[in-house]
Amino acid sequence: MTRITTSNFQKGIFIEYKNEPHQIVEFQFVNPGKGSAFVRTKLRNVKTGRVYEFTYKSGESVVEVFVNVSEMQYLYNENGKFVFMDQKNYNQISLSEEVTGSFHQYLKEGEIYQIFIQDQEAIGMRYPKKVRLMVSEAEEGVKGNTVTGAKKTVILETGARVTVPLFIKKGDFVSIDAETGEYVERISG
């Protein structure tokens, strides 16, 4: 644990904000009219992936936390624990559903994810904004149903259920907004 000031801010470093580790996504200096300098930041909570905005006084000190970002392959789900393997040293580490939140339903075996590690413990992962997954089960669209906006539910290769337009077929690849769970588009090929 080290204290740093806003002049040491860099994109990508991790600091403590409201007692939890956050990654600095963006920062810039601002001066309010007739006022001192401040540093406006966007901070991503390492555990939840949520992004917050906070404005520090220029020169204010914060706690820097040392978090490693490791590229890891998702192996399997073992009783609600999601097991990943480090691509470099083959160490295995697991994340609980508490940490992954609803994202676990999009974890695909064999895919590589970025895992945040502090003191040899996985504390979070980088959530992609969108995931690209194959449809493994889908009913045929009902013929003649041309109502605009008509929808059906399909099952993706990871087991997640998602609502999609009627033209989506088994074997299609679709893009899903991981945050809202909403269908974005069909990906050709």
Partner: peptide, 12 residues
């Protein structure tokens, strides 16, 4: 100062 304290609340 008062100004800095006020502006931090104001900006946030």
């Amino acid at each position: 100062t008062w100004e800095v304290t006020f502006n931090q609340i104001f900006l946030n």
